[in-house]
Design a protein around this nucleic acid. Sequence first.
DNA 1: CTGGATCCACTCTGATACTG
DNA 2: CAGTATCAGAGTGGATCCAG
Lengths: 157, 157
Amino acid sequence: MSAHRILGDRFAGWQKLALDSSQCPVRNLLDRIGDRWSLLILCALAAEPRRFSALARDVPDISKRMLTQTLRTLETDGLVHREVEPSIPPKVTYSLTPLGQSFAGPMLGLIDWAEANFAQVQAARLRFAEAARTYSASLSAIASPAAKPLAHAHWKL
Amino acid sequence: MSAHRILGDRFAGWQKLALDSSQCPVRNLLDRIGDRWSLLILCALAAEPRRFSALARDVPDISKRMLTQTLRTLETDGLVHREVEPSIPPKVTYSLTPLGQSFAGPMLGLIDWAEANFAQVQAARLRFAEAARTYSASLSAIASPAAKPLAHAHWKL
DNA sequence: CTGGATCCACTCTGATACTG
DNA sequence: CAGTATCAGAGTGGATCCAG
C-alpha cells in the first residue's frame, strides 16, 4: 500500500480534531517548524551543540531577536536544551535533547525529498509561468476585435 | 550513523546557498508547507481527488479565498493537478500529481513523529510553564526586602 | 556575551460582496 | 459551482537601542 493512500486514510481520523488547533498534533508541529528559522536551527544544532553567538554566525541572516525567540520556543517544546554557565561574560550553550534528536529522522526525510525534487518543482513553476504568459497574450490579441467572445474564456483554459 | 549526525553534516553544505532563499530547496519547501493549509490539503487529496466544494467541506474552517490561493500555489509547484470540466455549472477536480504523491512519504514520516511525540511536547510545555511560574514567584518574594540581589538572577535559573 | 524592549513594515488570513 | 476583488485585523520578522 503506497504512502499516499495511508496518508489519506489517516486524514479521515483528524476531521473531528482538526477543528481544535491546539489538540491536533500536526497543526501544533507546523506552528513550530513552519516558521522561517526553526528547521534551520535544528539542523545547525544537529551538527553540534553551539553557543548563542555561534548560532548567530552559522544561521545566515537571522537577527538576534528571532534567534532568541525561536530557541525559546524550541526549548519550551522540549526539543532544545539550554545550558547556562554563570560566568562573566555568560556562556550559553544550546543542544538537541533526545526528543530533538528523534525528530532528525523525519526531518531528514523531508530534506531529502526537497533536494531530490527541487528541480521538478522549479520546472513546474516555469511551465506554469509560461502557460500564464501565453494565455494573457492570446487574451490581448483578441481584445480589440470583439468584446463578448471573452466570456467564459477562463473556463476553457 | 544516526540521523541527526547525517543532518548535521548536510547542514554545512547549505551555508553558502542558504543566503539565497530562492536557491535553497529547504527554504523553498518551507515557504509552501509552512503555511496553515498546504499540508492539510495535500492530505485530503491523498485520500482521493476532490472537487473544490468537497475540499471546502472536508478541510475545516478554510475560507474559499485561502483554499483557492493554496491550491493555486500547489498547482504552480506541480504537486496538484487541476482538471476543469467546462460544463455549466463548472466542475473542477483537484488531484495529486505523481510528484505530489511522492511527497506523501516524507510527509507521513513527519506526521507519524508528530502523533507519536505530541504527548512529550505537551509535557515539556507544562514543565516549562511550571518552571516559569515558580521562578516569578521567587522573584516577587524577594522583591521587597532588597533591590540589588536581583542582579544576574536569571543567569542562575 | 546574551539577551530584553520597543517601534515599524510587511505578510498572512478571514469576512464580505460580486462575477461568469 | 468556482472562483475574484477589496478591505481590515492579526501576526511575524527586522532594526535599533538598552541592560545584566
